[in-house]
Design a protein around this nucleic acid. Structure first.
Lengths: 112, 112
DNA sequence: ATGCCATATCAGCACACAAGAATACGAGGT
DNA sequence: ACCTCGTATTCTTGTGTGCTGATATGGCAT
């Protein structure tokens, strides 16, 4: 019963999913898409980042299956494909309210 | 109602939490701790990684409030401090079974 | 006090990745 | 056909981060 270690493949998959969410700009993009699909241009405006940068991060999110792409003429509309992402964020935010320090050390070694 | 963008501070906090989980070794450590606290030595054996490396990653997890540390003599026992982490992993794993490709592109542009 | 063991930290290298600038692709309109 | 606008891709640079090996700290036993 010594903790059946999951395959490295699965481990790497999960890690890569989390890493996709470990970037403020990508979280901002997902958040912006929460109230419906948006074009790249709209997302550029919302995030305040450059167009190439937004496009690139959208590609990452799409590769991870987190957003979908719909081409309409010259425009490209992106939309949330994995609503469960917001549950993850809420879970993290919930713990934050419980008094965790954002940065710095959690607690010094066991004091004497 | 145009999507109240969360403060950059909160965004960065959430991202950093996800980034802490975006490493296979750290996920492995958390998984190994699922059936009770373990010493660093035990974790070194379970993960097959080096002792300094395990110690370092444990420090990261502790800094993020994901694990706790209990010193007993020369030993240091670590334990899960944020059980919700496994819910996150399960959520990600659940979507994986739904037919997402691990790597590569999710879908080509919208076909004509 | 000294030697040993478990853990933590430090220095260095290598790699991944994000941001910016410039450019290529592709669809529509005139 | 050409031009224009929106989007995607490439190249380069800089920063962050994981891994290795050596070293420091601290408790326990002799």
């Amino acid at each position: 019963m010594a903790s059946t270690t999951p395959d490295p493949e699965t481990l790497e998959y999960i890690a890569s999913q989390f890493r996709a969410l470990g970037e403020p700009l990508r979280l901002q993009l997902l958040h912006a898409l929460q109230d419906g699909e948006k074009s790249v241009g709209e997302l550029v405006e919302v995030t305040g980042s450059s167009q190439p940068n937004v496009s690139r991060h959208l590609a990452v999110l799409r590769q991870r299956g987190l957003v979908t792409r719909r081409a309409a003429g010259t425009l490209a509309y992106f939309a949330i494909a994995a609503p469960y992402v917001f549950d993850l964020c809420d879970a993290v935010c919930g713990t934050r309210a419980q008094g965790h320090s954002t940065a710095g050390d959690a607690a010094p070694q066991t004091p004497p």
